[in-house]
Design a protein around this nucleic acid. Structure first.
Length: 206
DNA sequence: AAACGGATGGGCT
DNA sequence: GCCCATCCGTTTG
């Protein structure tokens, strides 16, 4: 009897329609997959940050603009924006439609398509491929994924940990979740809204 | 190991 | 004009 291992069944819509800090914690261990003409790349989410409606560091805190429009859309969609003129950051929209919250994906543990990631990033070092929000966007090839795309429909998908075929044997074991302040911000810098898998070697920094 | 500065362009006051 | 949810190479301790 064949094991039901290749189902690639994405996280269900209600997963995202919850308080953003809960989603940020629960995204740890899930798997981001992107299929392009160049092939498949996949990595396990090991570091996230929550951005909340009444949080001055959140792009949506001062109302909707053309840039942050996707943050106010349905949960479970992408919010991707240009940062520092040369990089992009990838977020998952959370909370009910219209609220304006999201989870920044800050680091992945590479699982599949590692040679493709290495080509995109211009380095062979595994720990340099996806250990930062700008890096993982390059490695996964998601800079050109449209804003607001549905993460349950692809080509960019988020899967539960157990449904990923390459998960067994490849990954670092899940450990405790560590909570710290967020990285690279000045406003609301004291809030404990960064989450990562303690001891995982692929996080952006301790 | 940590600190620093340059690259580079859109958004916002 | 200044501010960035960054990264990388170089310099300094």
């Amino acid at each position: 009897m064949t094991r039901m291992v290749g189902s690639l069944k994405p996280l269900p819509a209600p997963f995202y329609d919850r308080p953003t800090t809960e989603v940020a914690r629960d995204l740890l261990g899930t798997v981001l997959v992107h299929d392009t003409p160049d092939g498949r790349a996949a990595g396990r989410i090991v570091e996230t940050e929550a951005y909340l409606r009444d949080d001055p560091a959140c792009h949506a805190a001062r109302g909707m603009t053309s840039r942050n429009e996707a943050m106010f859309g349905p949960p479970g969609r992408s919010y991707i924006y240009l940062i520092y003129g040369m990089y992009h950051c990838f977020n998952v929209v959370t909370a009910p439609s219209g609220v304006g919250e999201a989870v920044l994906i800050r680091a992945l543990e590479p699982l599949a398509g590692i040679p493709l990631m290495a080509r995109r990033r211009g380095t062979d070092k595994p720990k340099a491929l996806c250990s930062g929000p700008g890096k993982l966007v390059i490695a996964m090839g998601i800079a050109r994924v449209p804003n607001g795309s549905d993460l349950r429909k692809g080509p960019l998908l988020i899967l539960p940990p157990e449904s990923f075929p390459w998960h067994a044997g490849g990954g670092t074991p899940l450990r405790n979740i560590k909570v710290t302040t967020r990285i690279g911000i000045t406003r609301a810098a004291h809030l404990p809204l960064r989450f990562y898998l303690e001891g995982n070697p692929y996080i952006s920094r301790k």
